[in-house]
Simulated scan of single mutants.
Amino acid sequence: MSQISSLAVVLTRRLGSNVRIDPFAVIRSDVTIGDDVLIHPHVVIEDGVTIGDGVEVFPGAYLGKPPKGAGALSRTPRAEGVVEIGPGCSIGPHAVIFTDVRIGASTLLGDGASIREQSRIGSRCMIGRYVTINYNTQIGDRVRVQDHSWLAGNMTIEDDVFISGGVGTSNDNAIGRHGYLEDETRGPFIARGAAIGLGANLLPGIRIGVRAVVGAGSVVTRSVADDALVMGVPARERVR
């Protein structure tokens, strides 16, 4: 039996069974919620969001935020008004998921994580606290991104990648001085099974190879071969 607080604003009729919605949550009319979903206080869910079975959304999360440029951005945001959250996911307090985002089953978003439009996250991923995933970032299955890492727009992360805390990435060698050029603004490509150490920085357009390891604090300025170990500033290959 579902439990819907009288202090929540629930406009949708597409509710599964055994749903609990706590006080002061706001659920718009074009929202679909599966079975056994728990929505904590002060969650806002906008139109176009679909939530799978067994999902828990913690207090203050915002699902379906429309991207707004406010005249300050050099890139014009583009997004469909759709969010899909797979079954068994956990959405942490104050996480923000923009429109046009799809998240696979049993994925965890930590407290304050921000997922921008056009991004895709696979199944059984762990996105740590206060991680930013920028626009059009594609993440495979079983990826782990530790707290406070920053993933640039237009980048790809394949399956089974580990990214440690405080890792930075970038997608524009001109540092914004030439405006936004779609064909030239590309983040790193991180191939399957790679591991990125604490506080490393990955520059635009490089490829981190299959099962490669990037040492802590490294600045990676060029592509890394499969199975290689690199470290240093700038990062250079070492014997494993």
Rank of each mutant, 00 (worst) to 15 (best):
D147Q: 11
G179D: 10
I133L: 08
V43A: 07
A72S: 06
P204Y: 06
P87K: 03
H42W: 13
D47K: 03
I139V: 06
S114P: 07
V44A: 08
Y135E: 08
S119H: 00
D111M: 11
G215T: 09
S114L: 12
V143M: 11
V57W: 01
S123H: 12
G166E: 04
P87I: 09
D53T: 09
P77Q: 03
Y130P: 01
F24P: 07
G179M: 09
A228L: 06
D100Q: 01
S17Y: 10
Q146P: 07
L7V: 14
N171Q: 07
F162I: 07
G187H: 12
G176K: 13
R192L: 08
V214G: 09
G153K: 01
P204Q: 07
L11Q: 09
G165F: 08
R20C: 10
S5V: 09
A61N: 04
E182C: 03
W150D: 10
E117M: 04
K65P: 03
S106P: 04
L202F: 05
I196G: 14
N18E: 15
C89A: 00
G64K: 05
A235L: 09
A212H: 02
G60R: 01
G48A: 06
H40T: 10
S114C: 11
I39A: 05
A191W: 08
V49I: 02
T107N: 01
T76I: 01
Y180D: 01
F98T: 14
G86R: 07
C89L: 06
N136A: 14
S29L: 10
L229N: 08
G168R: 15
I85P: 02
M155R: 06
V49F: 03
V210Y: 13
D35C: 10
T76P: 04
F58T: 01
I127Y: 03
T169V: 12
F162T: 07
R222G: 01
E237N: 12
I103S: 07
V230W: 06
R207S: 05
Q138E: 00
I121S: 00
G69K: 11
H42S: 11
V239Q: 12
R120D: 11
M1C: 09
R177W: 05
L109S: 10
R211V: 00
G179S: 11
F58L: 02
E56Q: 08
V83W: 00
G168H: 13
P204W: 00
I206N: 00
V224T: 06
A225G: 11
G54H: 00
E80T: 10
F24K: 13
G88T: 04
H94M: 10
D147T: 15
T32R: 09
G153W: 02
Q3P: 00
I121V: 05
A72P: 04
D111A: 15
V43G: 03
I196A: 14
D172T: 01
Q138L: 03
R236E: 15
E237F: 14
V44S: 02
I133V: 03
V233M: 11
G71M: 05
E184H: 12
N134A: 09
S218T: 14
G128F: 00
P93D: 14
I196P: 15
V239N: 13
L73N: 06
I27L: 03
R240A: 15
V220H: 05
P204V: 13
R28F: 08
G179L: 06
T185W: 13
N201T: 15
F98Y: 15
A174E: 14
